[in-house]
């Protein structure tokens, strides 16, 4: 039986690891807390905002990291072209994560899928709650640009274009430790038949269980939680196992 996955997301600015809160960098905790023998998958994102920044510093970090990483490694941040994809794969990526580049030019998803297969493309969607009304809207460009799309519609279209997985992130929950936005996760999970990964808000092990049981997630992702706890991914997985979630122990 397929296991639910616990995924660690690492964000880098100009080659330096940091955590985020409300999509802003927070450099208080910059140690690498990845317990690479227990985690099921790792996502590394270059979130440098200066469009002219040197991508090489991120590639260098991935190259070093990939040498000792024997779980799947998804890499992304600023991917706009197939050349970017080739670079990300060359430095050790097993799959790539696209976000704003796919909003700008949705065919990018198809181009990657046709060359590397659907399973190689993760569509990352950042969503905000709509002001004063129900529902969510997709925001691109570091959650700064409204797109007019709902996350469910964009996820569905992304799947049609060839995305093999969807990563849904709640902007408001980023760094909040208040749990995943379960309604948002559920809307996206119900909209597609590919696996959905959820990110933003996990503050304790119970949130992982909720994300899977109520949010319909195939994989629960965290960025910040290990910065605040002494305990390991292994302990999170033992907790999930006790709650009846099938994980790789």
């Amino acid at each position: 039986m397929l296991r639910n996955r616990l995924v660690t997301v690492l964000t880098f600015n100009e080659g330096t690891l940091f955590r985020t809160k409300l999509f802003e960098p927070d450099y208080r905790y910059t140690h690498n807390f990845v317990d690479s023998w227990s985690v099921d998958e790792i996502v590394m994102l270059d979130v440098s905002r200066d469009p002219t920044h040197d991508k090489q510093s991120f590639y260098d970090v991935v190259t070093q990291f990939a040498k000792e990483c024997f779980v799947p490694l998804a890499v992304g941040g600023g991917i706009r072209s197939m050349e970017d994809v080739r670079q990300m794969m060359a430095v050790g990526g097993d799959k790539v994560v696209v976000n704003s580049g796919a909003v700008e030019r949705p065919e990018l998803i198809t181009e990657i899928a046709e060359a590397y297969g659907s399973q190689c493309v993760v569509l990352s969607i950042d969503a905000r709650k709509k002001d004063g009304e129900d529902g969510y809207e997709v925001f691109s460009h570091f959650a700064g640009q409204a797109t007019g799309m709902t996350p469910a519609d964009w996820a569905r279209r992304g799947q049609e274009l060839g995305a093999g997985e969807v990563l849904i992130t709640s902007v408001e929950r980023d760094g909040s430790l208040q749990g995943y936005d379960l309604a948002l996760c559920r809307q996206v999970a119900d909209a597609v038949s590919v696996p959905v990964l959820g990110l933003a808000g996990a503050g304790n092990w119970k949130h992982f269980v909720e994300g899977i049981e109520q949010g319909g997630l195939s994989a629960v992702c965290t960025q910040n939680i290990y910065h605040f706890t002494e305990t390991s991914i292994a302990s999170a997985k033992k907790f999930m196992d006790r709650k009846g979630i099938r994980v790789r122990l």
Binding site: M1, L2, R3, N4, R5, D40, S118, Q119, G164, E165, S193, V194, P195, S218, A219, R248
Partner: peptide, 27 residues
Amino acid sequence: RVPHVGWNEVLQASDCVLFDGIDDGAL
């Protein structure tokens, strides 16, 4: 969901050197 993504058990169906020392049903 498809694609099939993640850790799943592999049952060993016949003797093969690839699985030497690896538990039947390993992920």
